[in-house]
Nucleic acid binder design. Sequence first.
DNA 1: CGTTTGTTGTGAATTCATTCACAATATAAC
DNA 2: GTTATATTGTGAATGAATTCACAACAAACG
Lengths: 220, 220
Amino acid sequence: MNKELILRLSKYKRLLFKLKALGLERVFSNNLGDAIGVAPSLVRKDFSVLSLSGNKRGGYDIDMLIEKLDIVLGRDKPQEVIVVGCGRIGTALMQYEEFRNEGIKIIAGFDVSPENVSKTSGVPIYHIKEMKDFVEKNGTKVGIIAVPDSEAAATLDMMIESGIRGVLNFATIELRINNRGEIDNEEQPCTIHNINICLELEHLFYQVNVANEMEPEKAE
Amino acid sequence: MNKELILRLSKYKRLLFKLKALGLERVFSNNLGDAIGVAPSLVRKDFSVLSLSGNKRGGYDIDMLIEKLDIVLGRDKPQEVIVVGCGRIGTALMQYEEFRNEGIKIIAGFDVSPENVSKTSGVPIYHIKEMKDFVEKNGTKVGIIAVPDSEAAATLDMMIESGIRGVLNFATIELRINNRGEIDNEEQPCTIHNINICLELEHLFYQVNVANEMEPEKAE
DNA sequence: CGTTTGTTGTGAATTCATTCACAATATAAC
DNA sequence: GTTATATTGTGAATGAATTCACAACAAACG
């Protein structure tokens, strides 16, 4: 299963929810394709791979798609997350409204000095030393790294040691285990996704200052 | 120019800075490959495409690489950014330390009620109505969207109308213009990058709950 | 009931990034 | 100065994701 494919499946699902809320019952591959910006043939191929079949003329049943996608994406289990590092980014995430709509819940924050963290978010804040106990007790599997760059690598080690198996990293250093974000020779693999805001902005500056300044033919 | 390629170039550059700070003068393709997690042949291919050549035995000259990469990536110009939406995410970004190291500067924040935004970051906060004037006066080309989902599409329109040509979107709805994040039939193209935290977390849950729970052979 | 229409489903073709493999060659060693 | 060695540079091979193209077919229509 391809990373891009999984991302598309999540996008389909989100879109299908909205269409359903609007009262629709069926969709065509080109509706979905238009909305998420891919070719209709790719939508059909994706569904084909997952054995989601539609009606030869009436398109796909929205409820069916949502139900099957939920299974494929593993959305039956609770989506609970911890945040490690309660600085500005960390606390902003704890109060992030949109998580609620997606069924994602931040269940705890951890910091080296929890006494300095405002508790306004309603999320309990603990000292980072308590992380392992907490994660074991709650069976938490996913966590966010929002610590300064200098602490990121050590934080990752602690999280993996605690039992975390999926990590979203906001530090600007690229965290990896072995070669490509996943341990696969270990019994318990851990997946790491890096969100590197600086890198994204730099990419935009490239597009704006370089790619778009070229002759249209040379560009991109 | 491929998106992944541009990202790799930024990573090379960042790494080269660190190596230089450590006193190194030359690197081999496998040093760079190991460090950023790609094959050495890809590093060589990347440099080959850009006509960055090394010495048949002594590797690549770090200063030369940095200099040339800076040109290719368009880092000569100032990297100034505005933030639209000064809620928790927006203000956290305004105070984000790591931008400084990368030469990125947040030069203003805009909000519908600037009077409610704390000014502690040192970044001036204006009413969103003043954006167009500001952007025109300062020639700003890149901006960050940190408004609620419901406002995101309208905010994008305003930013483009104001003259912004590169957008980093933190709202969880996927913003696009035409089909794929770029207008290319217009005179002034605009590139949009979406950072969708919910999507990333959902992807992690998929990895943790589904992919990694399968038999190792079936997984991924 | 036969015909038209529109959409799915999928094997084949395509495209494109990455890896392979190795000739070319600069440096080091002797 | 000759030989050995390590690394670059790149054309060809590979591999994977996407698009194409069209047969199959269900629904609508007359």
